[in-house]
Design a protein around this nucleic acid. Structure first.
Lengths: 341, 341
DNA sequence: AATCTTTATGTAAGCGCTTGCATTTCTAGA
DNA sequence: TCTAGAAATGCAAGCGCTTACATAAAGATT
């Protein structure tokens, strides 16, 4: 109704003096077409400015060369980065990425899954493991290949491409402890429906336990992944007695907020309080002081996920778990206080 | 091939004991269907877990209820925010947003336009005015409704929903001058193929001219919209003699980089140098000191664009220009030096 | 030159949906 | 109760493409 009278396969076929089947093959299986005909067809295509009609293609072949991704949010750069790489890798194989957001709401995620499937995506990329059983059942019933990013679970029945949030957080906590901190507080993400957030908290908690320390409210606060909430949470922590000497944050955005709270309280980072983040997004190095944080391997994660989902969708390859290492990036928001009392 | 044996309209029709036409109408023109049948059909749909097949729909109706947006990049939050609102508003009308990126490359943008049209988008959202004439011609030939965001040009033959970059930058420069600054430098975006970047530069330049000042290299530098490049550019500016007392940046990301450069040079913002940004993304308030910047009306822009494109696509409404005001957000990176020499 | 492969192309039957038009069913006025 | 007119539904022809399968053309082999 909008795009008036586009040229169709038929038009191309007529102009090139071949059948529609041949044109279709030129597009999809060029190896099967003689060079001379291919040339004619290509000329006709160029001549008419023909573009295949997606709907027709999808209908006839039941393939769309599309994979869908549902991320919690586009607001911060947390997921956008990884998607960028996912996207790049997919497009190398001629596959388009469709992105939708769930706002961290499992209900909304389920809806979006349906929407994307309705659009005929050949595969799905989701974030994290935690979601209602029905969602997994639905996915299974439909036989849609899907990969879960941002987590890694060797024992998972699903296909994961990501990193071990627990381990990464554990390492970071050990690192902080190694810098002499004993009064450690944490601002975690909202754990409801978010396994990454809870694993990060547990990782920190476990590391602390290892050293005879405990992590619990009020030294443990859950907050949304926003600067504002990070700030509010940190403000509370700073009022505790004794105040923490280090605040471990569930992500960099919260950490940026914490930095502000510390400053507002008339203290400085890292002299009075250390603050560390998680994710290593741009923000982490933009703030002052630069955040010591956990570097998440966005690039590799995106690439591997792309390759895997392609294999699964195209060749019906079996699920696979790919775990990628994180590492701690040292900037200057963490101070060593071993020497002190 | 992937999603095995999904229920079709036919299945629903059979189960509900009606014809496929009726089921289709239930979905698209529910007003035309008697309540009792509608109920039966809805039950059947729920029962089977039916989802319409996008391809079939697109093929039959030549509508997709999809609009495409092509933004320069997802890397920073600059465009993501606006899209978020665009998306929200569109989904209220049951329309899906497809996002693609052009990496600030007109060539790539043209490609993406074709890709999106191939997917049958009912309308297109593009950023800025500047693009090859052929692209516009292509769009016109196809009769695709499209709106240009992030710019506003009353005299434009196209449909704009945005703000006046020139005016906004002009205002900001006036503001800076009003704070007593006379040695003003600017880090602009790369102007090639980017009208927003050039307009911002001209806005600043014009304001300065108004006060008998001039803006030109080496006090004017073009840099990419990254923290790193902003930092590099600022470093150069700080070495000039006389050094600028204020640096106006083409966007907040560059400004964040400039902040770092100033600090690295052993100076402080705003005591030694003032730095202002543009866009008012999260970053602007996360950095220290908070950036005085131009607030871009992401929300309104997104909404208005959505409404307009819907009207154009659905009702063939004529193009329209919607201009939205920007305003300056005062934080603390700009200092008044009127009193000083 | 005749035959058998192999390779290239054509034929035509759908894929799941919408929609103009024909038909049936209701509603309401007489 | 009958009937005209309105409202609801059904019928069936595609939308643009892919893909078995059938057929034709080209090469290979004697």
């Amino acid at each position: 109704m909008n795009t008036i009278n586009l040229p169709t396969l038929d038009d191309v076929a007529r102009l090139a003096g071949v059948s529609t089947a041949t044109v279709s093959r030129c597009l999809n299986l060029p190896a099967q077409v003689r060079d001379s005909t291919k040339l004619r067809v290509e000329a006709a295509i160029a001549d008419l400015g023909y573009t295949p009609h997606f709907g027709g293609m999808a209908l006839a072949s039941n393939r769309t060369n599309t994979v869908g991704a549902i991320i919690p949010t586009m607001e911060s750069a947390i997921f956008a980065r990884g998607l960028q790489f996912l996207q790049e890798e997919l497009s190398l194989s001629g596959i388009t990425l469709l992105v939708a957001t769930s706002q961290y709401d499992p209900e909304k995620e389920a809806q979006q899954i349906r929407a994307l499937l309705g659009r005929g995506v050949d595969g799905l990329v989701l974030i994290g493991q935690e979601r209602p059983e029905e969602t997994y059942e639905f996915l299974k019933a439909r036989r849609v290949p899907f990969v879960l990013m941002w987590t890694s679970a060797p024992n998972s029945p699903y296909c994961n491409v990501g990193f071990d949030n627990h381990q990464a957080a554990y390492d970071m906590a050990m690192h902080v402890i190694g810098h002499g901190h004993r009064h450690i507080a944490m601002i975690g993400g909202i754990t409801k429906g978010n396994d990454r957030a809870s694993e990060r908290i547990h990782g920190v908690s476990d590391a602390m336990k290892q050293h005879g320390l405990t992590l619990q409210p009020p030294y443990l606060v859950e907050a949304k992944y926003t600067i504002e909430q990070g700030k509010t949470a940190a403000r509370q922590l700073l009022r505790l007695d004794p105040p923490p000497t280090a605040i471990i944050c569930g992500n960099d955005v919260q950490a940026a907020g914490a930095l502000k709270a510390v400053r507002d309280a008339g203290l400085t980072v890292p002299d009075d309080v250390s603050v560390v983040g998680f994710d290593d997004i741009d923000l982490a190095e933009a703030v002052e002081p630069g955040l010591t944080t956990v570097h998440v391997p966005h690039r590799r994660m995106g690439r591997e996920a792309a390759r895997l989902i392609i294999k699964m969708a195209r060749d019906r390859a079996p699920a696979q778990n790919i775990s990628i290492d994180t590492k701690i990036v040292e900037r200057s928001s963490l101070r060593d206080i071993s020497g002190q009392s």
